[in-house]
Design a protein around this nucleic acid. Sequence first.
DNA 1: TCAATTCTTTAGAGTTGTTCTAATCTAATT
DNA 2: AATTAGATTAGAACAACTCTAAAGAATTGA
Lengths: 130, 130
Amino acid sequence: MLERLRDAGLRPTRQRLALARLLFEGGNRHVTAEQLHAEARREEIAVSLATIYNTLNQYRKAGLLREVVVDSGRSWFDTNLEEHHHFFHEATGALTDFEAEGLAVEGVPKAPAGTEIDRVEVIVRLRDPQ
Amino acid sequence: MLERLRDAGLRPTRQRLALARLLFEGGNRHVTAEQLHAEARREEIAVSLATIYNTLNQYRKAGLLREVVVDSGRSWFDTNLEEHHHFFHEATGALTDFEAEGLAVEGVPKAPAGTEIDRVEVIVRLRDPQ
DNA sequence: TCAATTCTTTAGAGTTGTTCTAATCTAATT
DNA sequence: AATTAGATTAGAACAACTCTAAAGAATTGA
């Protein structure tokens, strides 16, 4: 974990290490800033909300996390760096991954002049059965 | 326009009619609440920001508009009701449509138990050429 | 047509999620 | 150990909404 932070050019401070452990040990996960803050509090890790936001954004810039926008008014951070897509259940706000393997998006038009494609994101919005 | 509002079960008030004209006359468009408010102000239509929000949400619920979430912290409303997808240019915040025709998304996994697919959204994120 | 009723609009206060500020603290470097 | 550069913090500030309750406008029914 220490290495991972050093490689990303981030000083391995107490707070950053503790948050890295919560985020990266034990499988992929999705969190919001508030959720991570609450979790740190439960684990008795003293970290301010400002540091949670700073850290999540630094991790994102360093490529340790991805941001997922599905929900206006709240940012999700996703530790899964593999190519994948998302289910989003509007009713509950639940966000789950599905693998890109098996999914084919064909016929994406070429990028408008002066831009290039960064990535193609597929969001499958779910509702309760009617 | 009057008909359109009545059919949607909305009283055709001065404000709702004026906003409907801005939104629906003259081709498809994407707006945020603030943008529409500024535009109304320029056209000397007196509408409060609260009414802008109310109206956009009523239009969305009535199916006259769709909401597009690409940008955490801001909601976009899209008057294009046809099946289509979006380019989003991160650097400028520009949002543009592309037709669904020609695009094929294959191999979407089936919806998790207890849910069904509402819609499959494709967002092509653009960056400046490196 | 004109009350009476119901729905709509409004200004401003409130809320939520996020960023900023500037003072204090800590890791790295000398 | 002292210095310095960078990190953390509480709380203020900010942006995008949403709510409230009072005033206004569209509809209804006589």
